[in-house]
Amino acid sequence: MLMEPLRRAVAESPAVCLLGPRQVGKTTLALDLAEPLGAVYLDLESEQYLAKLQEPEAYLAMHRDRLVILDEVHRQPGLFPILRGQIDRSRRSGRRTGLYLLLSSASLDLLRQSGESLAGRLRLLEMAPLSVIEPTGASVERLWLRGGFPESLLAASDLLSLRWRLDFIRTYLERDVPQFGPRIAAETLRRFWTMLAHRQGAPLNVAELARNIGVDTKTAGRYIDLLVDLLLARRLPSWHANVGKRLVRAPRLYWRDSGMLHALLGIQDLESLLAHPVIGASWEGFVIENLIASAPEGTQASYGQDWCMSIC
């Protein structure tokens, strides 16, 4: 579903950034786009590819006439000023589109760097897990239970799907979170994530969460910000007709992928899900994500007084 918007963005903008959590299919999509274009692909987590960028300006200048794909670009934030220079030089020489496709599984550093270095040169697209509008061949019940990550959804059994999601969570806890966030024991952070899973869709009370895991409110707030920045959780704000209103209700926090939510709660199959107290909140979050995926680009979502979601 995202191929045409991505192809159009590359044709209209000098740099495009495709944001999405790990294993959601960003690289596969980018390589499908790259093949007919003869694009250059660089994985910035691989030493082999990083060696090519020891002199990044020279290397990028050498491939100025081709689309260059930089995967996991947030790992090399020092590239952004160089990309800006290359884009500006290409504009002066007449080429204004299709220079760089950036892939990232984290938005926090990337957005900060792009705001400083690529303002007016970068278009952002977000790639979410698979939704009901995409032709996966899976039933709505399976998509709800397993979530939209392709490896999880298409696993041979519910058990194998759950094992994949548990490994996925462990990778984030042990590798990705320590890279971006404050240092904390993986077990403590997992307990925090599980606590949030039990409170799926509830009003966000950071002070209470902080007390429950024995950290200060500021630290707990940073953990939640990190989850949102890693595109794993959604903070859904309340809707107000009067933007100047002093009383603002707390946002609601949702795990964006229902399969990840179920893995954190140890829910293996549909029967277990149907008997679990989280079933209502799980379905609510699943519907919200699918509505947002179906809405036009740039849509803003919020929840209303009667717990219904407003999309505008």
Rank of each mutant, 00 (worst) to 15 (best):
L209K: 00
K26P: 03
L230G: 00
G115W: 13
L110E: 07
R64W: 13
L264E: 02
A9S: 09
T97I: 13
Q305D: 09
V10A: 02
R222W: 02
Q48N: 10
S238Q: 13
V68H: 06
T299S: 05
E271Y: 07
V68S: 06
F168A: 06
R146E: 04
P21M: 09
D43H: 05
N212Q: 14
R75I: 11
P14M: 02
E35W: 14
L33R: 04
S272K: 08
P81D: 13
N212Y: 06
R211Q: 09
L291F: 12
L273C: 05
L166E: 09
P36C: 14
V24T: 12
E174S: 14
G266P: 08
R66C: 05
L159V: 14
S272V: 07
L99I: 08
D225E: 11
A233D: 07
A250S: 15
M195F: 05
L44F: 10
G25V: 12
T219K: 00
D71C: 12
A210C: 04
H276I: 06
L232K: 00
K52W: 14
R121D: 05
H276T: 08
P135N: 15
W283Q: 14
L31A: 11
P203A: 10
D216Y: 06
C17P: 11
L108Y: 09
G38E: 13
A128Y: 07
A11E: 05
S272Q: 13
E45L: 05
S139I: 11
L18S: 04
G221Y: 02
G98L: 04
R66T: 07
L70Q: 03
D32N: 13
M309L: 14
G259Q: 12
H276C: 05
A138E: 15
R222L: 01
L236I: 09
R235P: 00
S302P: 02
R249V: 10
L79G: 04
L264F: 01
R8D: 15
R183P: 01
W283N: 10
S105H: 06
S310F: 12
T171N: 01
A197N: 01
F180P: 02
L103T: 03
L122S: 06
Q113P: 07
I292L: 15
T27D: 00
L79Y: 03
L130F: 10
L42K: 00
R246C: 08
A185W: 08
S258L: 09
H240K: 14
L42Y: 03
S152N: 03
D229G: 12
H240R: 15
E35N: 14
L102D: 02
D269N: 12
R146S: 03
Y59L: 15
L67Y: 07
P277W: 03
Y303A: 03
P14D: 03
